[in-house]
Design a protein around this nucleic acid. Structure first.
Lengths: 223, 223
DNA sequence: TCGCGTTCGTTAGAAGCTATAACGAGAGTG
DNA sequence: CACTCTCGTTATAGCTTCTAACGAACGCGA
């Protein structure tokens, strides 16, 4: 046990090491020019080897990008888990600020997860697993959340709808419908504020996105 | 007058006609494979002429895409204006549903406007003008909106912040702060729900995005 | 109606990309 | 020590954007 199957043979060790370095260079390149401009050729040259060598490590460009998306999901889920593990009990505000911190830390990484979807792309199983892992933390925080604003009639209707379709709640099959709706509102509202901020739709407006974010957060945690 | 400067010379007429056909084919291609896969070469071949011919009509790929973004903005602004012009007075619910209809009509067009930003891209003047044209319609609807939920403390703080920085309100320099905040919440919340829906983050959850959208709309228009 | 200039579409080509194929050299295994 | 599997190489096909140079056609003024 200990260093598990990851460190089997020296070959495997080296292989993993190169894959990591490729991904590292890929992140650098994405940070500069976005994911659509990611070039395997450029990465290879940057690592001192010639183009097609990288195809020993990644079947194609899409596989590399999928790997990057997976890592991005993983880092966000870890950030969530850290928040849940740290302070006394889960807290929606802490989760929200961790989300914003994570997004501002690397906007391109954020857009890799929540931006324009790649046409043919379908998330593999393990990525949806990470997503539901995050949802689980979020539902815990929702359950622990205090009193919340009186829901509008449409919100009540949505909660009724949710009561019948909670398969996505994963390990929280008994979560009350208001909690499910709160979790979804958390997700959509904060993502709305964040993605518009990061896409630059507020630039030139002279408003502070942090305050807008806090305002939207306030609409979730109640007064 | 009448047919204005657009129909000056026969040459100019033909030129505009070709430009329109190029954009038409571009939309077809985007609808199939997304904007990142848009190929000038493929469009040219589809129109029966050889690659570089298109460079007589568009300086480069970016100029074509910018034009498409402009048209996309224009069509959304028109959809907003139609709603405002039609029924008796502006209505937030009608605007919201027009927004969702517009988005579902062509998700790729939606992402062209609100999706992952192109790294080097900066919106030209006339596009920001269209954006503030929409904001004006939205602010009218906010002013006409009925009683709204009691704002959370963070929302009050944000309104105070907005009171000092309302330059973006354009032709509504005297809009009250609660209206400004409502307009921004409209924008961010509905965009949050829409973009997650269109990006497919709800697929497999078995929930009805229309009801989620209505629920979020309910949070804006009050009970 | 005739010429002349502008504009258009062409082909050729450079530079870049993804991706495959075939080959040589090395490393680890039995 | 030899054998095999893996790695990195070069060559190549096919795609892309975009520039350059050439010929033809179109339309405007005379």
């Amino acid at each position: 046990m200990g260093t598990s199957a990851s460190t089997r043979t020296p070959r495997e060790r080296y292989r993993q090491q190169v894959r990591e370095e490729v991904k590292e260079k890929a992140w650098q390149q994405i940070a500069g020019s976005g994911a659509s401009a990611l070039s395997l050729n450029a990465i290879a040259k940057q690592m001192g080897m010639s183009g097609p060598a990288l195809y020993r490590y990644f079947a194609n460009r899409d596989e590399l990008i999928t790997e990057l998306i997976r890592d991005a999901y993983r880092s966000l889920a870890d950030a969530f888990a850290d928040v849940a593990g740290a302070g006394g009990g889960p807290d929606l505000g802490a989760l929200a600020r961790a989300l914003r911190r994570w997004a501002l830390e690397d906007p391109h990484r954020y857009f890799l997860v929540y931006g324009t979807p790649v046409p043919g792309y379908h998330a593999p199983q393990d990525i949806t697993a990470i997503a539901s892992e995050m949802m689980s933390v979020l539902l815990d925080a929702c359950a622990a959340a205090g009193p919340r604003p009186e829901p509008a009639p449409q919100a009540r209707a949505f909660e009724d709808h949710l009561a019948g379709r909670r398969e996505w709640a994963g390990d929280h099959p008994d979560a009350p419908s208001p909690d499910l709706r709160l979790a979804l509102a958390f997700w959509t509202r904060l993502h709305g504020a964040l993605s518009l901020e990061l896409a630059g739709h507020f630039t030139g407006m002279g408003l502070d996105p942090a305050l807008l974010f806090e305002s939207e957060l306030g609409s979730l945690t109640g007064h």
